[in-house]
Design a binder for these strands. Structure first.
Length: 257
DNA sequence: ATGTCAAATGGTATTTGA
């Protein structure tokens, strides 16, 4: 079972890269963030041609999340069931899992109202995870928080910035403490594991990255983890997203009976 | 030089967001 999370920064602009990725890497599940597409524009038929069922929660210009899977996708839920107008979370049953594709708010600046919205959104996600405790869970997405200083290329240059502040990190830990394992860090306790590099400044070439994209699972499922890696090829080449795809491979479990 | 990229608007450029 290969599961991937990837913030594509516009599925319209990234279609060639995404379709090539599905064809060549053959993941079982792809969790997408920032489709930046309306429901009408989302290319369900093109995913079907590649052998995937795709479900989407989009609003058009900004945000937009999707779950793309080879096997059946059912019981789709869009948003948190509250008044949030921004399309930042979709979940569905995929096989024996409940999977989530998540796109946390950016925060913009520590004194910006969007920062408060970010903290509240992460707390709402924590509640959601708590409500599903005991189930097979897999969350993937762009959480817009570098969990520790190990996840930031230069902590000294991020003093006073978003993505590394104490409240943001506490909010992310709250999600994890609700019963999830940080799969990349479990597999590789040391090392940078960056998933995002600014388009500017030649950041990718210079290694100026952040780890802000995560795959999180319940502890039982984490026992089946075989490997996790950042697919750096997705950040290279023609018209890349500013995020790389994060890949987790699970060993198949014996069917329950 | 926050040095790029993407979407939207009403453009052959500017604003907003990341």
């Amino acid at each position: 079972m290969k599961v991937v999370t990837w913030n594509v920064n516009s599925l319209t602009a990234r279609w060639a890269r995404v379709s090539e990725f599905l064809s060549s890497r053959q993941p079982d599940v792809l969790l997408i963030q920032e489709t930046k597409q309306s429901e009408e524009k989302f290319p369900s038929a093109d995913f079907a041609e590649l052998g995937y069922e795709a479900v989407h929660y989009g609003q058009g210009q900004w945000n937009g999340v999707a779950i793309v899977a080879r096997d059946g996708v059912s019981d789709v839920r869009r948003g948190f069931g509250d008044a949030d107008p921004e399309a930042r979370v979709i979940s569905a049953r995929v096989g024996e899992w409940r999977m989530f594709s998540c796109y946390a708010p950016n925060g913009r600046a520590l004194d910006n109202p969007h920062y408060t919205y970010k903290l509240q959104w992460l707390d709402r996600l924590r509640e959601e995870v708590t409500a599903h405790r005991g189930e097979r869970l897999l969350l993937g997405g762009d959480f817009n928080v570098a969990r520790t200083d190990l996840d930031c290329w230069d902590p000294s240059s991020f003093v006073g910035a978003t993505h590394v502040s104490v409240p943001e990190r506490a909010a992310l830990e709250g999600v994890l403490d609700a019963g999830l394992v940080d799969l990349a860090r479990r597999h590789q306790p040391e090392g940078p594991l960056y998933t995002w590099w600014d388009y500017r400044n030649g950041s990718f070439r210079r290694g100026w990255g952040l780890r802000i994209d995560y795959l999180l699972s319940d502890p039982t499922s984490a026992e089946d983890l075989r490997e996790v890696y950042v697919d750096r090829e997705t950040r290279k080449g023609e018209r890349p997203s500013d995020h790389a795809a994060l890949v987790a491979q699970f060993d198949r479990r014996a069917p329950a009976d």
